[in-house]
Design a binder for these strands. Structure first.
Lengths: 182, 182
DNA sequence: CCTTGCATGTAAGAAGTTACATGATTGA
DNA sequence: TCAATCATGTAACTTCTTACATGCAAGG
């Protein structure tokens, strides 16, 4: 699975501009995929050259013009062949967890800061995802619901483990900062 | 955080060969970081050239020679500066979750296959991680324990959500394959 | 006036993977 | 005899990010 496959999939649902696609990544895909404009625009150009999508120039008043891309029959075939390919394993890259491995090499105050920071981020992301689910839930397909449930379950578990971990580390060693109240 | 930072960190704990470092990635880091030999060896060469590590040739009998790398004082300073840098956000790339988003564009039988497959993988990884924790737990630092607890919590949650999801989808639509018993 | 949103793109470079190339030893 | 383990490395390629470049309109 590359950016190409995902972009083609988005256009298989409905025609969109590069800007719209970026929006999709920020909303629907944020917790398990992302791509920047530096990927999106060159990919759209490439897909068009290959005949998998077509471009239409849409003039707007009061706003810049848009290039709306639509998938072709060839594009649909290509996307189906992605769906039939083997599933790639999940890849997680976590700076936070790498640092936990090296915890003994770092100042305990700093480690405490990392953990509190991670907890705060996780709590914020949990709220945000739960909010998305409430807003979009009724419009989601069953598998899209499953997807966001996985995301929410993951973060909820992470928040729990971090809270327990902070409490436990505090008893081992009085180095944890008090959690900040905002 | 790049491969460089992590490799330097591993050598900050104790001297190792490229081969040993790969082993570490497969054992300790598997669920949140990985690097191939194609990253490890060129990185070791670069770090040596920069004076952050030193190489020692170790002759072995019955086995190929090893290049054991040790961190220098300069290397330790560099690694500390990584630890003091801002934490990068977690990045997850999940082909499975991408496909769940496009579930409506795929054959329901195929979707059922994806989910059962993901469940089986998750269950296998859960067993493997729990096993690691049992084996290595007593030798782990408190923050390393926290790290593996996060990993286990994540997968456990994923298994739960997938199991519930399979049951729910089965009531919606009689397309789910019976789980295989191995 | 300043920021946000809308909107498209390029260029340089970082980072990493895959496949290739080599070769001895051990155990089944 | 065959596979796995030990062990190091290169080259070509893919993929993606960051920074740059541009510019209008609306709202506070």
């Amino acid at each position: 699975m590359t950016g190409q496959d995902v972009i083609l999939g988005i256009l298989a649902v409905e025609p969109k501009s590069g800007y719209d696609i970026k929006k999709k990544f920020e909303n629907l895909f944020s917790y398990f995929f992302d791509a920047s404009y530096g990927t999106i625009y060159p990919t759209l150009g490439k897909l068009e050259k290959e005949g998998l999508i077509t471009k239409e120039n849409v003039v707007q008043q009061g706003k810049p013009n848009k290039h709306i891309y639509s998938i072709t029959e060839q594009g649909r075939v290509k996307f189906q062949s992605y769906l039939e390919s083997d599933i790639q394993e999940n890849v997680l890259r976590s700076d936070f967890m790498v640092r936990l491995i090296f915890g003994e090499l770092a100042d305990p105050q700093m480690v405490a800061g990392w953990i509190n920071n991670a907890l705060q981020r996780s709590q914020a992301e949990l709220l945000s995802l739960e909010n998305d689910y409430e807003r979009m839930g009724p419009n989601m397909s069953p598998t899209q619901e499953l997807c966001i449930q996985i995301g929410i379950g993951n973060i909820r578990s992470q928040v729990q483990v971090l809270q327990d971990g902070i409490a436990r580390l505090r008893t081992i060693n009085n180095n944890m900062e008090a959690p900040s109240h905002e």
